[in-house]
Design a protein around this nucleic acid. Structure first.
Lengths: 321, 321
DNA sequence: TTGAAAGCGATACCAA
DNA sequence: TTGGTATCGCTTTCAA
């Protein structure tokens, strides 16, 4: 670069990195800085991390489906928290690629840590990442993966809370909405399983209700509501709750008298519905906690992978059930 | 790497890149590939792009606020479309950094193209990026920036459509909700300005209504609704519409008889409200179009920056106004 | 058909 | 206090 500023590149490096090991005269520093500014010099991250043998990049796959405010906020907090620890968070757009192929694509960037939501990464993928220099691989999903740290976020508990709550309210024939939208199975399946688990052995029944997120589908489901004979429904989340509750009301089904409705995610919109929506609130780990875990793992990559159950769920009782 | 597979690294490179310039014997290819698999070898993107002098990385700043389904979908389509053209999309988590500082941070990664939503990037930032090798800088915002391609998405038209519609409906005292949430000014200010522009010279009045996205704030606003004397309100988007409409109804204000309500973004929830929400639908450019623009710009970086007006807005009339 | 070697940009050691 | 130089991993040209 600006060794046209009259000095060697080594000097440039010293100045721009405020190296304290060597001392550079003030005039030289100024000359270098000025030259850098004039030329619009920006260091080359690839060259730097090639030389250094490591980077401060934390890689996450970009979510492949429209994501709600809860997750948005989580990512955001995480970015801020990791930024404070001087990491750079990068969301990598992995289109349709899966598993090992995705892991290899990520590994090419030689991130210092990889955070993977969901269950798209297997032990082989983890191995690829670690061999390529990732000092921490953290999965955020329902189960631990060999070799990786895990933040166990089993959506099971969400369904479990909802199911237990409805049972306590005296409901015995419980429907569970399962979104037809692709990409959501990772959340919907455990939520359904959680309801089943909560009701196992109680004699209450659980009916799976596939539902697309559009009015027509909701109306059709509502139309056969009597025939289904359900006295409660857990709707996967608040948005599906709004959709279904509207359809039920339009079909003349009284909520909560004839059918209780419970959503999840505790979105603002639930409070605005009438009746006000009972919902399951999720306690996600704070961005700062996760950032701290990542940092610890990076500093001591040899440590045994930690696994933490981090998702709490609690019912917020309002009017719909 | 696996020159422990008995060959030179040159050969490895040839094999793994399917170089057609040179011919490698089939047995050698097999040996190399097997060794690569066994060792879990993954090429080092930094080294590669350092040597090549360029990358296929398209960089976007990660949004700093919870983002709705419309934008989510847009990003997603874009990622898919650019992926088809063999680019890799990376969302860079720029915490609180702004302007030139952000531009420099991005430039360090030497992306081949940079897409910047909003108006956070000035001509200096563009210059930094281009000097550091970005072959295309595209802004997605209200105005063109010197040196960059622009997809002009002036939210002005959203407000304009809403204002004109309400005026056509005979409304003359029009409120405009402006979210208090930080990070949304980039959208809310032009939407407000659009309403003003649509009504300029008509004698209709425009009243700015700052509103936080919570129930209390909405209730307080609704409580002084009579005193405000408005006969219509454009609520920035559908979510604020839901919030305010609920508060108005709870306060006994009849919608649309006393006050018309118009939202924006055409979210599903608007259809589920009663009265059904009139809204402004946004026509964003498809991911494929934007991807094509990026690709063209990358192929011919010398070409004059293009500027396209790409945002259309149309009112979807339902029941609320 | 394969190997040797230069070079991309930044850093860190050693010598001047 | 500074400059020269080896090095990181990979691609590519030239030679063998």
């Amino acid at each position: 670069m600006a060794r046209l500023a009259g000095v060697s590149r080594a000097t440039v490096s010293y100045v721009l990195n405020n190296a304290d090991a060597v001392r550079i005269s003030e005039p030289t520093r100024r000359r270098v800085r000025e030259a850098a500014r004039e030329l619009g010099y920006v260091p080359h991250a690839a060259a730097r991390s090639l030389r250094a043998g490591h980077s401060r990049m934390v890689l996450m796959p970009a979510p492949a489906f429209p994501v709600g405010p809860v997750y948005s906020q989580f990512i955001n907090d995480l970015q801020v928290a990791l930024g404070r620890l001087d990491y750079t968070v990068v969301q990598y757009g992995t289109v349709g690629v899966h598993d090992d192929e995705a892991a290899r694509a990520w590994a090419e960037l030689r991130p210092v840590a990889v955070l993977v939501p969901g269950s798209g990464l297997g032990p082989r993928g983890v191995a690829v990442l670690k061999r390529s220099g990732a000092r921490a691989v953290v999965t955020l999903g329902p189960e631990t993966v060999e070799g990786a740290h895990a933040l166990l976020m089993d959506h099971d508990v969400v369904g479990h809370s909802a199911g237990a709550h409805l049972f306590d309210q005296g409901r015995r024939r419980i429907g569970v909405v399962v979104p037809r939208e692709p990409g959501l199975e990772a959340f919907s399946a455990p939520r359904l399983a959680g309801v089943r688990a909560a009701l196992r052995g109680t004699g209450a029944t659980v009916t799976e209700l596939p539902l697309a997120h559009d009015e027509g589908a909701a109306a059709r489901l509502a139309a056969r509501w009597c025939e289904l004979g359900l006295d409660a429904v857990f709707t996967y989340n608040d948005e599906y709750a709004m959709l279904l509750m509207r359809a039920l009301q339009d079909a003349g089904v009284r909520v909560p008298e004839e059918t209780a409705v419970v959503g999840a995610d505790n979105l603002m919109l639930g409070r605005l519905l009438r009746p006000r929506l009972t919902t399951v609130h999720l306690d996600l780990p704070s961005g700062a906690e996760l950032a701290a875990l990542v940092d610890r793992a990076v500093r001591d990559p040899a440590a045994a992978p930690e696994a933490h159950k981090v998702m709490g769920a609690s019912v917020i009782r309002r009017e719909s059930g």
